[in-house]
Design a protein around this nucleic acid. Structure first.
Length: 143
DNA sequence: CTTCTCACA
DNA sequence: TGTGAGGA
């Protein structure tokens, strides 16, 4: 029995997570001081602060941005260079995430491996492309 | 206890 | 970018 994926796709809604500056700092290894500075420079952004909320909060997107900037920073890039790399990396990640989100329509299991339905393959919409996965190995089949 | 803004021996 | 002050 294949499991339909569409209804469970909300598990990928990482954006529902909210972090405070201290948490984001520990998660990324970037100091709160830097996070505020980067925001001031427009490199990252925190969620809107309503009247009652004086403290900054961040969503998953912000976490990803910070994580990527930090990565390139550790790699020797200048802050500006790291930000530039982050911006382009975000474009790739967005495209990949978008693809994964809509390509997987259902998942089933056969002898220790997962069989993932990647949707309609031919023009007549009669055949589907299936990915058989076992750990790192992936084999495709048109059925 | 955490976060904020501002200033800088 | 770090650090300390003085509040919230």
């Amino acid at each position: 029995m294949a499991i339909p994926f569409e209804e469970l796709t909300t598990v990928f809604s990482f954006d529902d997570f909210v972090f405070r500056i201290g948490e984001l700092s520990k998660m990324t290894g970037v100091s709160p001081r830097q996070l505020r500075y980067w925001e001031q420079r427009g490199y990252i952004k925190s969620l809107d602060r309503t009247d009652d909320k004086r403290a900054r909060s961040y969503n998953y997107a912000a976490y990803v941005s910070v994580k990527i900037i930090k990565h390139y920073l550790d790699d020797g890039y200048t802050l500006e260079g790291a930000v530039s790399q982050m911006r382009s990396a975000i474009k790739y990640l967005t495209a990949v995430r978008q693809f994964i989100r809509h390509s997987v329509t259902s998942v089933d299991f056969e002898d220790g491996g997962a069989v993932i339905d990647l949707g309609v393959f031919d023009g007549d919409q009669q055949k589907h492309l299936y990915a058989h996965t076992r750990g790192t190995d992936i084999n495709y089949e048109i059925r």
